[in-house]
């Protein structure tokens, strides 16, 4: 077992974990942050995307021990009372149906806009290539990210 200290959505945690424990399982099963789901086992789908020290990572591809000392933001900590502009845009553009990919998609979109505050549609599509959605056909996700960009989400 290894000792880790990690800040998740503004709260500090210290835990003993198995060295092989995935960050996403640490989040979900050790500290109860079930807002971040698991969609695959090959890091293709992106459902488990979180921000680690401000940068998006697929939390199924990070070991909990690698997150030692890191500051993690999950979908549960993205809004600060008010919904994040990307969350609002996903609601307003109907960019989700079943909602399973949505936490990862929103986090990835927020990170995309941080990197590129005014992406073209093609840049949005390329930028979200690592996040799969089976419901929406992506049309409304692209619209939502565009709307969030216009609302200044990346600034």
């Amino acid at each position: 077992m290894a000792q880790i200290k990690v800040t998740v959505d503004g709260v500090q945690y210290a835990d003993q974990v198995e060295p092989r424990l995935l960050l996403v399982h640490y989040l979900r099963e050790v500290i109860g942050k079930t807002g971040t789901p698991v969609g695959c086992d090959t890091s293709n789908c992106g459902a488990c995307t979180v921000l680690m020290d401000g940068v998006s990572v697929k939390s199924c591809s990070v070991l909990a021990v690698q997150a030692d000392g890191a500051d993690i933001t999950t979908i549960e900590g993205l809004s600060d009372g008010e919904w994040h502009p990307v969350q609002r845009a996903f609601h307003e553009e109907h960019a989700l149906q079943c909602g399973y990919c949505t936490p990862g998609m929103i986090i990835a979109a927020a990170d995309l806009l941080r990197d590129n505050p005014h992406p073209t549609d093609a840049e949005i599509r390329e930028g979200l290539e690592g996040n799969l959605c089976r419901c929406t056909g992506y049309e409304n996700i692209v619209r939502a990210v565009r709307r969030a960009a216009e609302a200044g989400a990346g600034q």
Binding site: G35, T36, T74, L78, W83, Q87, F90, H91, G99, T102
Partner: peptide, 8 residues
């Protein structure tokens, strides 16, 4: 949507 976009 409210629960789906906030991880609840």
């Amino acid at each position: 949507d409210a629960r789906l976009i906030t991880g609840q």
